[in-house]
Design a protein around this nucleic acid. Structure first.
Lengths: 287, 287
DNA sequence: ATACATGTCTGTAAATATGCATTTTGTAAA
DNA sequence: TTTACAAAATGCATATTTACAGACATGTAT
């Protein structure tokens, strides 16, 4: 066996089921995936996949080697992390995955002193809705509203976010401000997708759920903010965002609450001097 | 990191120190090794090797990832074994590593019934002096005189070899047969290289060591046999070999002894039906 | 049925990696 | 120093691998 790289194709095909999807993941042509899987099977002398109408499925032999190969993949990732984690100069790129609104209106405004001190560090923000995998080093750090369950990550609470219910004054010209949960019925509700919500937000919503008719859902706070600002309805927002428009009124129908903010990193990475510097700044200066 | 194969080059270079030696191991050109190591270092953004006058040496970063990569290599080998070990048809090649004389005069003569029963199995014998690595599946089975220390191999005693001191009658025409250890001085001694010897053989030799002047050393019993048969001197031989020449006389100066014969295999491999069949035959029919 | 979307297979041109021959470098002996 | 030698780097021709494009297959909604 002298084509270790083929095992990457094996794992991708096993995950994605089809040549085309795997090709997308591996950033190669679909024909290449097919041919390399063929090569691998030939050189092992065994069929690893069974081709069915709905995709490629592991044979018994494939199932047998899968756990070992998954472990190998994890090993490769750990090599990358070990390399990235041993960097001792405070320079280079630090990738941070976090909610976009939090980056734009909470972290970035406070970053000036750090950037002046460490001019060699460049930032990259991953604010997309996709879950970012720190084990695969898709980012160096993540700032999250939900505490990750994964065992091997280091997690630190770095602050709290205040969540309250808001509406734009224009909403309340024809209808008076809601005072009871019953009143909420009269206003369209604008909210996040459930998987983007913090635990607290879910709790708050549970209390008023039966009275809501949700008109807009989004994966990002900023679009919730702009929807509310445009008078499209009411919704829950973090205070740092709501405060950007002084006209927005906080509705006392439900109590506001505070949800913790978690800084998450992989232990292999925090040894890197540049990541360490960012972590320290976030922890001390921003708390 | 999307070039897993480069890690193979890393490990080879780490083992062999020079590009040229690594190229030999990997069966590629020396230039290729150099270029791929360069690629790997570029893509990791880190120097892994320090080029010194006497070869390539790991940098601190290289040292840091070495253990992980060694584990990965072991994982790759285990994949090969898992695939080979799951074969359920009694057909294909079975590679056996064993001393050449033992193969030629002990195993092969007894193989006829097995081959008639399992005509689909083909044998390959590795009788060279090189140590064969079963973990890397350089052979399916090994038959050895020294019990392997490696933990993860399955070992079974399949018989015993009788070792005695022999000489050819032509030696004793001018000088009479040796009767005491002192007498042995008068005859040239023909022996194996120490690392080919069984424990017993070393013990036997220790007793007469001071009286020996060794004229011929070999890694294989057969050349010891032919040397003795040609009257070049005396030496220790297994009885099955010595008996091939009825004229050879056994010298009672030192007692003869029996040394165990070990059948060794990797647990992943013994699940393979064809290897299982050979193992069972060797154990039952040849005991 | 028909059109459409999705995925796979195959042949070919282009990109890429490799081997080979040659030059360069570094080290030790004369 | 020169000379000799082994290993490594370099340039170029060649072999291999890849992407691309179009044909083909299959399943799905109209």
């Amino acid at each position: 066996m002298n084509q270790w790289d083929d095992f990457r194709y094996f794992l991708a095909l096993q995950r994605n089921m089809t040549l085309k999807a795997s090709a997308r993941e591996l950033k190669v042509d679909q024909a290449t995936v097919g041919r390399r899987i063929q090569t691998l099977e030939d050189s092992l002398g065994t069929q690893l996949f069974e081709k069915r109408s709905d995709g490629y499925f592991l044979t018994l032999a494939g199932e047998r080697v899968l756990p070992t190969l998954k472990a190998l993949e994890e090993g490769i990732h750990s090599v990358e992390r070990l390399i990235a984690g041993q960097e001792e100069r405070i320079e280079g790129i630090v990738k941070i995955a976090m909610p976009g609104a939090l980056a734009n209106h909470w972290l970035i405004p406070k970053l000036q002193p750090f950037i002046q001190k460490h001019s060699q560090i460049k930032f990259e923000f991953l604010t997309g809705p996709e879950a970012v995998n720190l084990s695969r080093r898709e980012a160096d750090l993540a700032i999250r509203l939900v505490r990750p369950t994964q065992r091997d990550l280091v997690v630190k609470k770095i602050g709290e976010i205040q969540l309250s219910l808001y509406g734009h004054p224009s909403l309340f010209t024809s209808t008076r401000r809601p005072a009871t949960k019953e009143d909420l019925k009269k206003f369209p509700f604008i909210g996040l997708f459930p998987n983007s919500m913090s635990e607290l937000e879910k709790q708050l919503l549970k209390k008023i759920e039966p009275h809501l008719h949700c008109t807009i859902r989004s994966g990002a706070w900023s679009s919730v903010f702009y929807s509310i600002q445009s008078g499209l309805g009411i919704g829950i927002l973090p205070s740092f965002l709501a405060e950007r428009d002084s006209k927005l009124v906080q509705l006392q129908v439900i109590e506001s609450g505070r949800t913790p903010l978690w800084l998450v990193a992989h232990p292999d990475i925090v040894h890197s001097a540049r990541v360490r510097a960012v972590i320290d700044y976030v922890i001390t200066a921003l708390k």
